[in-house]
Simulated assay, not measured.
Amino acid sequence: MDRQTQKMIGNLGSEDKDVKYQAFLYVQAATNKPVDWAYEIWERLKNDLTHSDNHRRAIAGQLLCNLAKSDHEGRIFLDFPDLLELTKDKRFVTARHTLQALWKIGLAGERQKEMLLNGLTERFDDCKNEKNCTLIRFDIIESLRKLYDQDKDETIRQKALTLIETEANFKYRRKYAFVWKK
Rank of each mutant, 00 (worst) to 15 (best):
I136R: 05
K128P: 00
E165P: 04
I41G: 08
F80W: 08
T94H: 03
D53K: 07
I164F: 00
N66P: 05
V19W: 12
C65R: 01
I9S: 05
K46I: 07
E165G: 04
T155C: 09
L25M: 13
Q62T: 12
I59Q: 11
E43N: 04
L67M: 09
H51D: 15
L163H: 00
D36G: 06
T155S: 14
G13Y: 10
R44T: 15
Q100A: 08
A30S: 06
W37N: 00
R75Q: 10
E73C: 04
G10I: 06
I76S: 03
K46R: 13
Q112C: 06
R111G: 12
R44L: 11
Y148R: 08
R123G: 03
D16A: 09
K90W: 03
E154H: 09
F178M: 14
L78C: 06
H72N: 08
C133D: 13
A68R: 04
D18S: 13
K146V: 05
V93N: 14
D125G: 06
I76A: 05
D139L: 00
L147E: 01
K152N: 10
N118Q: 13
H51T: 07
T121N: 02
L144V: 01
Y26R: 05
K171N: 12
R3T: 12
Q62L: 04
K69T: 11
E85C: 01
L49I: 05
Y21T: 12
Q28G: 06
I140A: 03
